[in-house]
Design a protein around this nucleic acid. Sequence first.
DNA 1: ACCTGAACACCGTTCAAGT
DNA 2: ACCTGAACACCGTTCAAGT
Lengths: 184, 184
Amino acid sequence: MVMATGRDEWVEAAYERFAEHGLAAVRVEPLAAALGTTKGSFYWHFSSRAELIAAVMERWEERETLQAIDVAEASGPPAERLAALFQAVASRARGRQGEATLYVEAVEEGVMAAVERVSQRRIDYIAGLLVELGLDPQEAQRRGVVCLAMVLGLQQLGTGTSGSLTAVRDPELARTALAMALAV
Amino acid sequence: MVMATGRDEWVEAAYERFAEHGLAAVRVEPLAAALGTTKGSFYWHFSSRAELIAAVMERWEERETLQAIDVAEASGPPAERLAALFQAVASRARGRQGEATLYVEAVEEGVMAAVERVSQRRIDYIAGLLVELGLDPQEAQRRGVVCLAMVLGLQQLGTGTSGSLTAVRDPELARTALAMALAV
DNA sequence: ACCTGAACACCGTTCAAGT
DNA sequence: ACCTGAACACCGTTCAAGT
């Protein structure tokens, strides 16, 4: 008798496909094949693909929250923490292409709420650092939005690695982005 | 006898679906239904869906080039032209959600070359303005990349309109983004 | 030259039947 | 309780047959 495929293994396998290729790449049949089981098994554990997607987003939100706390825990002055954040995103981008398209896919898949909560946390975290640096709270909030947009956009531009767009791989990019974020 | 559906009508119908919902939303069968014809007709004009996608990107590149020239033609000092660009993107975003996910989809669909050419033109245009404003050419190029990233990211954040992320709809955002772009 | 309609493959979903 | 395997719908693709 072979070990049964638990709900958790479905979610974890789906999570990996999401992180690497996005939500649209989370497909029941290929997943079943990869796990060496059948679609029928999947539909015993889940009522639909949508339920699987929701579980993936839940897991993402948890991990994203933990990691945000990790970043926050990293001590040092605010400017340094912001620099570390940009640097972390820049280096973490590869292998996490899934997030590059998440905002759009979240609408299609009906899981925008989780994405908005995580975005808000990210914006608040950046805005908090900028307030520590002396910015007006409202302007800091706006700048937090623009910084998150930078990160998402850079992630997106970095996706087509093979190409002629060499400027995207300039190692000085993170420094320039930081300077723009901190500009008074 | 009814008017035959020409290749051009297929491309234009596909282009509209791309602009509103992205490349993934360009599907042969629904398109055929919308045009009141059959998939068989489609495969007379095109060898595959990929060929249709390529034609859509060609059209996009042409129109994007024309529009870039339009923006460039708009006279005024460089800072004003940059402001107009951010403003244009901000207001044009609705109804053009298709581009929000384009960088990722372009890889999947094998049409990254066109996207990179357009990106390079956009970056060069912004960098050119920044050089006029006295920036070092290399730094201007990097900042052009970050500005394009901002635009793509803001477009992405703007996609889930219905939500709690109110900061994204702050009308002052464009001004903040411009200030960050111009910061010395 | 251009199109229809039937066929097949792929994947989401259902369900009767098995252990 | 958990899974298999067959069925059906949806859409990309092919193709023989029509006009």
